[in-house]
Simulated assay, not measured.
Amino acid sequence: MATLILVRHGRSTANTAGVLAGRTPGVHLDERGAAQAAALPARLAALPIAAAVSSPLERCRETLQPLLDARPGLALETDERISECDYGDWSGRKLGELADQPLMEIVQQHPSAAAFPGGESMRAMQTRAVEAVRDWNARIEAAHGEHAVYVMCSHGDIIKSLVADALGMHLDLFQRVQVEPCSVTAVRYTRTRPFLLRLGDTGDFAALAPPAPADGAAEARDGDNGRAVVGGGAGAP
């Protein structure tokens, strides 16, 4: 079956503002995110990409635009099933304000039981994303053969849930996975099992360095205080 190249969107204005954007319209790449997107065509230059699929949200479509510009024959498809988690009433709120909400402990420790007020459950999020990938795998293989490679641009929690599925991990373990902005995760699907080929690859180890304090406080990142950043965070400073 196909090899899926999962790209998380580049850093967004919401990431740098510490806001849980969710499906809020009008969230775009920031300057660094645009630079990350501009570097994507060179990073994927060796791959014969058969198709490009994106979440309908602006930050994902903007991330793939340089790749589309570099490959004029590559058309963009959008799929609502790989859109960001519907965080409901949490959408547009500061992550710092949400940290002490009782639901946050469930999101961190037992995400398969987490459902956002006015939004969707994390279990439903994973189900729709996995169904989308299975569907696209079949479509790509039928059109381009079993060794085809295609790109899908989505969001942090979506990609983490797909990685959990590929590894046979329970959703309750998915907060142990981290994917940086504009990172590449590759999964090769076969008839009997998926193979995780790359996970959150940015080609840059700067994210592993201790963060430099800014105005007395370091930017939140996965692993701080044992917590995952809901929505994926802004990546390395």
Rank of each mutant, 00 (worst) to 15 (best):
G168D: 12
G33W: 04
V177M: 14
H155T: 00
M104T: 11
M1T: 02
L98H: 08
T185C: 08
A148V: 12
R8A: 13
F116I: 15
K94M: 07
S161D: 01
L173D: 08
L95Y: 15
M104D: 00
A70T: 06
A129K: 02
L103R: 04
M104G: 04
S183V: 03
T202L: 05
D215K: 09
A52S: 03
A70F: 11
P237W: 08
D100Y: 00
L98F: 07
G226V: 10
I82W: 10
T16E: 01
R221Q: 01
G18D: 00
N137V: 00
I106D: 05
A46V: 06
Y189G: 14
D135W: 08
S55F: 01
A212G: 13
P117F: 11
S161Y: 00
L20S: 04
A34L: 08
G203A: 13
Q65C: 11
A217Y: 06
V107Q: 05
G92R: 05
R8M: 10
T13G: 03
R61V: 03
E62L: 06
I5N: 13
A114P: 13
H170T: 11
V27C: 06
G92H: 08
M152T: 13
E219Q: 05
Y150S: 05
P194N: 15
G233N: 07
A2V: 03
D69C: 08
D172H: 02
I159A: 02
A34K: 06
A115F: 07
I5V: 15
T16K: 05
A14W: 07
R32F: 02
C182Q: 11
G33M: 03
M125E: 08
V130A: 04
G216D: 01
H155S: 00
G18C: 06
A207F: 14
I5W: 15
I82L: 14
T202K: 02
Y150R: 02
L4N: 01
A207R: 04
G33R: 00
E180A: 09
P56S: 02
A129N: 05
G223H: 12
I106N: 06
P48A: 12
A236L: 01
G96I: 13
S12C: 09
H144C: 09
V53E: 07
R11K: 01
E84K: 01
E141V: 11
G223R: 10
P41K: 01
S12E: 02
R188T: 15
G119M: 11
S112R: 09
R123D: 10
A218W: 12
L6R: 01
M1P: 05
P41S: 08
A113Y: 09
H147A: 09
S54C: 14
R123G: 13
V229G: 02
L103E: 03
G92S: 09
A166P: 06
D215E: 14
G235S: 01
G231R: 03
G231K: 04
G168R: 13
H144T: 07
R59H: 09
